[in-house]
């Protein structure tokens, strides 16, 4: 007989469930590089395959909802980088990589680096809306960090001159190549430490993904995050998102659009001012007219109480009194005559 208590014996389900908890609880999203084997696309649209290196194999499942974004046709033998989560399938006790993204290893590397950094900074809270600075509505000095020779700077200047011509201070920077991040960082520091402006535009015209990669630099992201001056990013085209865009205070799709967001439209402003002026005038005219009406009513009431009108009414009352006295006098005279005639009668 085995000398073990009944409670100490696990069921198979318990073991699998326990392992599932340990594995899925401790491994977050991760990246795996390997070679595809046994690639099968099921009728359901889900893809099942393995990735392997020289020594090992890892089972993978790539569900339809994720694999519909694939931008190439993977085949057995392809080198790929996978993003996903390790999950345990309890009924069979097998674990697998639940793939959410697949990159072709050659050109996918930049993209993978980007995703990794993005996730890291996101987890640190560097993209949090609460941290974003408010871009001023009426700036007087604008800092621009971009290449002095590129069209992007000219575009920015044109928009600002047309909409709301204020001072533009260019920090000439490299916007591509190995030394670009360092030079962009210097720009952010320069405005923060030596040359205060109301808002900074960080811009670059369109280019390939590799061209824009300087804006995915981690140190640049941290410098943008630290900036006390609000930063508007306008990098590449509508579809391009860089780490700088995520960490900046306001993202514009292009350099010109960044300039539009940096300044108000003076034509619109002046129209609003005119509207305000006519509102003011209207309200005051109305008030003055109302006051005139009130005044004329009041003056009628005052006239009614004036000394002349009071004298007039005394006069009238006096006249009435005099009249009544006259009547009384007449009545008295008549009575006197009556009495006299009666007395005559008695005397005779």
């Amino acid at each position: 007989m085995l000398n073990i208590k009944k409670e100490e014996i696990f069921s198979v389900s318990e073991i699998n469930s326990h392992i599932k908890h340990i594995v899925e609880g401790s491994l977050s999203t991760l990246f795996v590089e390997g070679e595809i084997a046994n690639f099968t696309r099921h009728r359901s649209g889900h893809i099942y395959f393995s990735v392997k290196d020289l020594n090992s194999t890892l089972r993978c499942v790539f569900f339809r909802s994720y694999n519909s974004y694939l931008d190439f046709k993977p085949e057995d033998g392809d080198k790929v980088i996978l993003a996903g989560k390790v999950t345990v399938f309890e009924p069979s006790g097998q674990y697998q990589l639940n793939v959410t993204k697949m990159y072709s290893a050659g050109k996918g590397l930049l993209q993978v680096e980007f995703e990794k950094l993005k996730k890291k900074l996101l987890d640190e809270g560097m993209f949090a809306p609460e941290h974003k600075l408010k871009v001023p509505s009426y700036p007087e000095n604008i800092g621009v960090i971009t290449s002095p020779t590129a069209a992007a700077f000219q575009d920015i200047c044109n928009v600002i001159k047309r909409r709301y011509p204020v001072n533009i201070n260019l920090f000439p920077a490299l916007t591509q190549g190995e030394r670009a991040p360092e030079s962009l960082i210097a720009g952010v520091q320069y405005f923060n430490e030596k040359f205060p402006v109301d808002v900074i535009i960080l811009g670059r015209g369109g280019g390939s993904q590799e061209d824009l990669f300087s804006f995915n630099d981690e140190q640049l992201a941290r410098e943008i995050y630290k900036s006390k001056i609000p930063i508007i990013t306008g990098i590449g085209h509508e579809i391009d998102f860089t780490i700088a865009d995520f960490v900046g205070d306001l993202r514009a799709p292009t350099p010109s659009a960044a300039a539009e967001l940096a300044v108000p439209d003076s034509k619109e402003l002046k129209m609003n001012l005119q509207e305000m002026q006519s509102k003011l005038t209207m309200i005051v005219n109305h008030k003055v007219m109302n006051s005139k009406v009130t005044l004329s009513e009041l003056s009628k009431r005052v006239q009614a109480k004036s000394p002349e009108s009071q004298l007039q009414s005394f006069q009238q009352r006096l006249d009435e009194a005099v009249l009544r006295f006259t009547h009384l006098g007449q009545r008295f005279t008549r009575k006197k005559e009556d009495i006299e005639s009666i007395a005559k009668h008695f005397n005779s």
Partner: peptide
């Protein structure tokens, strides 16, 4: 109000762009 509207309008009318190129390692 009227004075402020005048002030703002003239402030906007008198805006002028000055472009300054700062010094960086680019020279």
């Amino acid at each position: 109000g009227t004075e402020l509207v005048k002030f703002c309008t003239s402030k906007i009318d008198n805006l002028e762009t000055k472009i300054t190129q700062l010094t960086s390692q680019l020279g």
